[in-house]
Design a protein around this nucleic acid. Sequence first.
DNA 1: CAATTTGGCTACTAATTTTGTAGACTATCA
DNA 2: TGATAGTCTACAAAATTAGTAGCCAAATTG
Lengths: 142, 142
Amino acid sequence: MKLSTRGRYGARLMIDLAAHYGKGLVLLKDLASRQHLSAKYLDQLMLSLRRAGLVKSKRGVKGGFQLAKPPEEIRLLEVVEAVEGPLDLVDCVAHPEGCPRSRKCVTLEVWEEVGREIRQVLARRTLADLAQRQQQKEGAPF
Amino acid sequence: MKLSTRGRYGARLMIDLAAHYGKGLVLLKDLASRQHLSAKYLDQLMLSLRRAGLVKSKRGVKGGFQLAKPPEEIRLLEVVEAVEGPLDLVDCVAHPEGCPRSRKCVTLEVWEEVGREIRQVLARRTLADLAQRQQQKEGAPF
DNA sequence: CAATTTGGCTACTAATTTTGTAGACTATCA
DNA sequence: TGATAGTCTACAAAATTAGTAGCCAAATTG
């Protein structure tokens, strides 16, 4: 019941990109060194984020990454689902037909409800919110 | 971000025990065959549930298991946490001192909030609720 | 156009976690 | 005292996650 590194790193990555929004492209290696993460691994996360339509990239000498839309329009939920896959507590929520018990399963309903709740919390936060809070914290003494 | 089999089986186990509450001890092997699970694996889950004070057991010839308190007083949250451990999305919620970033980490707050929400949903359901719903569903045509 | 930079993508390996099994031990009852 | 049934630790197999390697494709610059 833990978020994997993909979700955690993905969130940090996108908040970083949000902080640089409107200031041109950001290099993957800069992102990696700022966040103390392996560039090669971030590379993979970027693949997912790009395919989900959350970041745009440009290759070659003056290349880099940037958010595909303003940080106000990107919710943390989208980011996490892009890199982690659907946020359900159990697979049978998405594929109830695979389980013969699903029709008579009381716990299934509960797992569904928890999933909805998780998505709601994550959908409340946009990258703009988070980037702003981040900046406030940076300024604080510690 | 999935619940493991421990949480899923644990819930089914306890709902089964709730349905038999007040009717004497239940044998592990009966529990296992009713739920189509390995007795040896359930054995382990029972260990956790007993240590958490949720079930009582008796050894020997007329032994078996039963809930340690009435089903109305056991919440799904207790069951899941007993077999899965603390329901936090990230470890740094429980151990922020291990991460140098924790003080300035904006995502930490979000993960904490999600954790609270998950616990709230699971705390709303008691084993009595679930066992009753279960019985209703059993009776239904399909 | 050739060299260099930077992202795109696939495949693989290593580490970790999850899922289960084996087996020896202990209590209880007839 | 022998059979039954829970207790507990350790181990093994399977699955998932985390991270690396390496080659390809596009853009820029000289």
